[in-house]
Design a protein around this nucleic acid. Structure first.
Lengths: 332, 332
DNA sequence: AACCATGATGGAATCGTTTCCATGAGGGTG
DNA sequence: CACCCTCATGGAAACGATTCCATCATGGTT
């Protein structure tokens, strides 16, 4: 314990203190290679005595890679992504891996920038909720990163392992439930990047013989303001709709708010189903019927996937569940 | 653009391509030192042609520090901390600094572990919502980290810059408001680590001449389950209370849930004020009266503080605001 | 004309670790 | 007894950047 201005204790100091070579210290401490019990003891004692912590900097430079996981999500303020991040962190921390986080705001350009910065930092494992198309991931793959996509796959990168929710089935369940209540003019509030869900929505309608009205499919960006604008605009332009499926919790929140603002009562005037179950869905008035998604699990699985780099694994699809509460009623 | 198995382009490659020395390349690219316009041009061209990105690893090792910011929060799932993290990320990303995030779960031991891992990674700037006492931060200061505390100060480390909310004033406002409605038996649901607020709560009661009932001050850990248990236990043990102040949004959520479960109506039977304004507070039934805190701003300011390392600055105190909605009523 | 200040430049050391390789000791087998 | 194989060990190279320092050229001053 020296005064400030001290030099970091290095492996060399330990070697000196233990009266062995640095190579031996490295071998003992990293557990690889041979060492006699006596030497091992000496080294361990010296390391403990000097309170030695190996520098990740030196190790990483030599190994030509940074341990750790890069995590790219659209918005940490969205509880869905927060839970996803929590899953990643839980897995990563139990594996002792640091996590570098970045938020893209669903902006491909910012995503590209963050990818660049991860490459610069030699982070070689990335979990991402991709915003853009597959192109911007070119540099990442060229640099040899192992990537796992979460929540959404990327078209054109089908062989990249991904962990996604079963959008098709989730959307179908919701649409069938609404149709069963008599609804025909059902709107879908989607975020950019949810093309998959929009497609599933069209398919589900078509399967039920309901004509698809493209004007009822509205897109918003990953921000509260954008979500509110989309929801409010939808209600105002199309007062004839009787049900809304919100593609995420922020869109659901916006829908409730916009409906309240416009004096549209839920579920009397409009039925509402929201993707993603969040704690407040139950506290809301009325309690929201939702399609729950295992966000935290998704993050955890993605982290597992990206950590066992060896085996190439296909994409994992996680199930959704319809939780009926009080925000849907028969067509008025 | 080579096939896989390629070597990273290094500064040496650029030097060769530009027909100059590596030192010159470094000077040009990092902007320091002298270089003739002609050479500068050559270097820049070569770097662009080879798509050169300097390795952060090499730089960091030489500089003996990692750029970037370590961020330690109790729970990323709590929207308050998510917003705080968002503020940090916004500032850090606009400064081009990577952020390493870790969640402590308000567990001092995990916190200590994460601090250790930050030191190992040579991260030299940390923003933390501290869980434990000042002791575990010893190693961090000894290692020369520059630390900024957020949300809570740490006793015994008063000279560490911090960004906190004005707990005293926030609590006082809430208590005075409740007292003004006639409430006397007011409970406080606190999280561990909110000793500051509990103290302010006692002071505010004392200032109003209301006797302090220690049994009405209940503590929970940073998890939904713990919060619910605390809230439910409180309502069951003390059916005589008429108002509750929740120290955080998860505690408020738990209080609403527990009250509903026990058939306690808000605000008829019990008035409720929650610390931290969240989007769902308005959607809740009844809409929740809250003490809003500038969480995102707090994170941003903390990041600013930790980034301009030079000047030592005192702690910043951010104001709170009482937002009256519908969860408080006169004493029954 | 000699000298010096200044700017441009590149070689080489350095950061802390891992890992390759050479060396040496010791024991078992032919 | 010679030989070889194995294990233990340490020196030194490598990773990729920054930066100190020496060298050299140039132009201005005395």
């Amino acid at each position: 314990m020296r005064v400030s201005g001290q030099r970091r204790t290095t492996i060399k100091d330990v070697a000196e203190a233990a009266e062995v070579g640095v190579a031996t210290v490295s071998r003992v401490l990293s557990g690889t290679g041979f060492a006699s019990p006596a030497t091992r003891e000496k080294v361990l004692a010296a390391a403990a005595r000097l309170d030695y912590r190996p520098s990740a900097l030196g190790r990483n430079l030599r190994r030509q890679r940074t341990g750790g996981i890069g995590l790219l999500i659209p918005d940490i303020t969205d509880t869905f992504y927060a839970r996803l991040a929590d899953g990643v962190l839980t897995c990563a921390q139990s594996a002792g891996e640091p996590v570098m986080i970045g938020t893209t705001g669903d902006d491909p350009e910012r995503e590209a920038q963050l990818i660049g910065s991860l490459i610069e930092e030699s982070v070689d494992r990335v979990i991402a909720v991709p915003s853009g198309d597959g192109e911007m991931w070119g540099p990442a793959f060229r640099a040899g990163l192992s990537v796992v996509f979460a929540e959404r796959p990327v078209q054109g990168r089908e062989n990249v392992p991904s962990v996604v929710t079963d959008d098709r089935s989730g959307v179908r369940t919701a649409v069938e439930y609404l149709a069963g209540l008599g609804h025909r003019r059902i709107a879908f509030l989607a975020r950019h990047g949810q093309a998959q869900r929009a497609r599933a929505f069209r398919e589900a309608l078509a399967a039920l013989g309901v004509p698809v009205d493209e004007e009822l499919i509205v897109r918003a960006h990953a921000s509260r303001d954008s979500a509110y604008a989309a929801a409010s605009g939808l209600f105002q332009h199309r007062p004839d709709l009787t049900a809304v499926l919100a593609g995420g919790n922020m869109l659901g929140e916006a829908a409730v708010l916009a409906a309240r603002e416009l004096d549209i009562r839920v579920p009397r005037d409009v039925s509402l189903i929201m993707f993603d179950d969040v704690p407040w869905a139950e506290l809301c008035s009325p309690p929201l019927t939702v399609i729950s998604q295992p966000a935290q699990d998704m993050g955890y699985r993605a982290a597992e996937l990206v950590l066992r780099e060896g085996r190439r694994s296909r994409t994992v699809t996680l199930p959704t569940e319809l939780i009926v509460r009080g925000s849907c009623g028969p067509r008025r």
